[in-house]
Design a protein around this nucleic acid. Sequence first.
DNA 1: CAATAGTTTAGAATCGTTCAAGAGAAAAAA
DNA 2: TTTTTTCTCTTGAACGATTCTAAACTATTG
Lengths: 138, 138
Amino acid sequence: MVATRPYADALARLRATKLRPTRQRLALAKLLFSGADRHVTAESLHKEARANRVRVSLATIYNTLHQFTRAGMLREVIVDSTRSYFDTNTSHHHHFFCEQSQLLEDIPSGAVSVGTLPPPPRGTSISRIDVVIRVHPR
Amino acid sequence: MVATRPYADALARLRATKLRPTRQRLALAKLLFSGADRHVTAESLHKEARANRVRVSLATIYNTLHQFTRAGMLREVIVDSTRSYFDTNTSHHHHFFCEQSQLLEDIPSGAVSVGTLPPPPRGTSISRIDVVIRVHPR
DNA sequence: CAATAGTTTAGAATCGTTCAAGAGAAAAAA
DNA sequence: TTTTTTCTCTTGAACGATTCTAAACTATTG
Ligand SMILES: [Mn+2]
Ligand SMILES: [Mn+2]
Ligand SMILES: [Zn+2]
Ligand SMILES: [Zn+2]
């Protein structure tokens, strides 16, 4: 049985922000948060919306992805210098990234331990540590 | 005293590849490898070339960065989903990346230890592990 | 309901990067 | 050296992902 809770949570958070629960946002939230955690690009989500007869412009897809990210419902993952990926799993974790399939796979935070860190550059503090393990078909 | 060896090494490697030592490639190699290790973007290198009265088209900058990368003289660093960075330090190491200044800073490989790794996705093997520590001005 | 503020949309614009084709330069052959 | 071949460089167009614009639309408020 697939989690339906995350979607309810997402709706609650939608309400908690100043974002109006519009037809488009609700439909996209449903697609994004009704099942297991996932990684999407603007284009992949747009395709999926169309496949589910949800009519949304690409501009709205971008707007929504950024708004959900600001609201803490999504997190951006940087693994490709030409495309942005968004992750429904906002907890601290890392990724496998297959350069060939362009697919991301989660690595639970506990499965990677980053040891002794050098101090960050003068005047800065750490906002986040990303570990990306690039893989290729054997 | 700034290292002049890396430049000589780069020239040697240029020769070792099938890349002809053209005026443009020599000039760019000199800019890239005459001093300490550094991180450049196509645009930043283009600006630097112009500032040094090296006339090179942007297309050649891109071609050269990719050719040097294929030749193992540079390595691409992925920290930004809109721009490509190239690193003259091709040894295994990690990075601090300041989202504000868009500047990279090296972290010696030894300064970070990545612990227990989960097995890569079925049918794939690890090609590289990247640790990016994002920082922001305090 | 009317007024207001926020949202969506199509299409144009932008930006980094790549492509295409012809002119130019280096290497190999003669 | 000259000729021929191969590779390289350049300009400008093309591209793909993303953002912007301004007008139409919708949710919220009073
Ligand atoms: Mn973005
Ligand atoms: Mn590239
Ligand atoms: Zn993830
Ligand atoms: Zn580096």
